[in-house]
């Protein structure tokens, strides 16, 4: 049987802008993935516990409030701490160019800003998810 890519789409932090997260979730579903959506206002602990239980291959974080430097890195660190460092983590939102290197260093492998096409995200996931 074909192995399905499982993705957790999570919205950490307080902003309620879920249009992007939901559009991405639907697009990933349409690309044949199993997508678990957490809803709004997730703490790092909630995201990581969910990722563990759902045994996901990918975590997609969406945040538009500008709190990404704190919250994305919190999650990346907690994942490593729990031995989940091999999960592919990507992030989207309003992320200034200058923050990107530090986010990548912390373990967020893909950063997608406004205007990213769904295809680009899908391709990135398919190419980078571990086999």
């Amino acid at each position: 049987m074909e192995r399905k890519i499982r993705v957790l789409v999570a919205k950490p932090g307080l902003d309620g802008h879920d249009r992007g997260a939901k559009v991405v979730a639907r697009a990933l579903r349409d690309a044949g993935m199993e997508v678990i959506y957490t809803g709004l206002h997730q703490t790092a602990e909630m995201v990581v516990q969910t990722a563990i239980q759902e045994d996901v291959d990918v975590i997609g974080l969406s945040l538009l409030s500008g709190a990404h430097m704190t919250l994305f890195t919190d999650i990346a660190e907690l994942l490593k701490e729990r031995g989940m460092g091999d999960v592919l983590v990507v992030g989207g939102g309003i992320i200034p160019e200058e923050d990107v290197p530090r986010l990548k260093e912390s373990g967020i492998k893909g950063i997608f800003g406004p205007g990213t096409s769904m295809d680009e995200i899908i391709t990135f996931i398919k190419e980078n998810v571990k086999g």
């Binding site: 932090g13 307080l14 902003d15 206002h41 703490t43 409030s65 709190a67 704190t70 919250l71 919190d74």
Partner: peptide, 17 residues
């Protein structure tokens, strides 16, 4: 965001915001 949700700056959910 913390203000929009009726939280003070020192609330745990305000982290990073």
């Amino acid at each position: 965001y913390p203000t929009l949700y009726g939280y003070d700056t020192d609330h745990p959910l305000a982290r990073g915001e």
